[in-house]
Computed example of a mutant assay.
Amino acid sequence: MRAAHKLLLGLAAVALLCGQLPAPMDPANPSCPKAPDWSNNKIMALKVVRKGDARVLLAEGPVDQTLPDRLKQALTDNPDISEIWLRSPGGNARAGNAAGRLIRATPGLVTRIPAGWTCFSACNFVFMGGQLRVVEPGGNFMVHMFTMTGDRDAIDQSVALGTETTVELIGDIEQESALLASEDNDFLIRMGVSRKLLTDIMYKQKAVTSGGDQSTRRCLTQDEVFKYNVANVQE
């Protein structure tokens, strides 16, 4: 009995040293980690490294409007890149879509969310560009419903200018949100991801607000990433 207890303690110590113990979950959103690992970079950094025999592009940080051009240059300069590993809090939605389409134009390129890393929001669409896609157990494909109404500064300013300006801004927001939703739907179809990801998951989440309400977030389970064909390679 004492030997078994020592064995369990030893295994726990090994798991702790290897970083294999599960991260604490967010009480406001039990499907996601309390402190997502999506890097502290100000914009997405692109770095080519060697992992075993493979050349891997590490893509870490927020998606900004310069990402598609920088990603295109990185892939052009390093044609032997076989995988892109992603962790990101999201960012510019259209830049994420453009980067995803660019990745899809590179045959056989693998996108991966490693264990412990989180790919959120616009990063989802970068990731889905991979022809082959891997979400490792412990990796987080984190989603929310896109909205433009989180831009409280623009709304507050329009209210100060009067009702007519506010009505016009809200109309623009609704039109832009509808357009982006249509683009997202088309993107999923082109990438071979189930459209039910939008209807079953994304559109059922509350919109992200300027207050950063974490209950708006949802992390897919391993069963779900395969159910919706978000991941199509199981290792």
Score class of each variant (00 low, 15 high):
residue 105 A to C: 14
residue 87 R to Q: 14
residue 82 S to Q: 04
residue 220 L to H: 06
residue 51 K to R: 15
residue 76 T to F: 00
residue 140 N to V: 02
residue 65 Q to W: 09
residue 208 V to F: 15
residue 135 V to L: 00
residue 15 A to S: 12
residue 3 A to D: 13
residue 136 E to H: 02
residue 226 F to V: 06
residue 28 A to C: 02
residue 116 G to V: 02
residue 165 T to C: 02
residue 5 H to I: 15
residue 227 K to I: 04
residue 63 V to Y: 10
residue 56 V to T: 01
residue 127 F to M: 05
residue 117 W to S: 00
residue 3 A to L: 12
residue 12 A to S: 08
residue 140 N to E: 05
residue 50 R to N: 02
residue 109 L to Q: 08
residue 233 V to E: 13
residue 1 M to V: 14
residue 139 G to D: 03
residue 31 S to F: 04
residue 193 V to A: 13
residue 129 G to I: 08
residue 222 Q to M: 08
residue 46 L to T: 00
residue 86 L to H: 04
residue 48 V to M: 07
residue 162 G to T: 11
residue 199 T to E: 10
residue 130 G to Q: 06
residue 164 E to I: 07
residue 190 R to S: 11
residue 79 P to N: 07
residue 67 L to D: 09
residue 106 T to N: 14
residue 203 Y to E: 15
residue 150 G to V: 05
residue 58 L to R: 08
residue 130 G to T: 02
residue 141 F to C: 03
residue 112 R to H: 11
residue 168 E to K: 11
residue 105 A to K: 15
residue 105 A to D: 14
residue 93 A to D: 12
residue 96 G to E: 02
residue 172 D to V: 13
residue 166 T to I: 05
residue 43 I to C: 11
residue 142 M to Q: 11
residue 149 T to G: 06
residue 61 G to R: 04
residue 3 A to I: 12
residue 221 T to P: 13
residue 169 L to G: 06
residue 135 V to D: 06
residue 182 S to A: 15
residue 10 G to W: 02
residue 67 L to P: 01
residue 208 V to N: 10
residue 67 L to Y: 05
residue 71 L to I: 00
residue 191 M to R: 06
residue 146 F to L: 15
residue 176 E to W: 15
residue 99 A to T: 09
residue 60 E to M: 06
residue 174 E to A: 13
residue 93 A to P: 01
residue 223 D to P: 05
residue 29 N to E: 12
residue 187 F to G: 06
residue 204 K to P: 03
residue 11 L to T: 07
residue 44 M to H: 08
residue 27 P to V: 00
residue 227 K to G: 12
residue 164 E to V: 13
residue 95 A to W: 10
residue 84 I to F: 08
residue 64 D to G: 03
residue 167 V to T: 09
residue 177 S to C: 11
residue 63 V to E: 04
residue 135 V to Y: 00
residue 222 Q to V: 09
residue 213 D to L: 05
residue 117 W to L: 01
residue 15 A to D: 07
residue 173 I to P: 08
residue 54 A to Y: 03
residue 60 E to G: 05
residue 180 L to C: 10
residue 141 F to G: 01
residue 36 P to C: 06
residue 18 C to H: 15
residue 62 P to V: 11
residue 86 L to K: 00
residue 54 A to W: 07
residue 164 E to A: 14
residue 39 S to F: 03
residue 87 R to P: 01
residue 14 V to S: 01
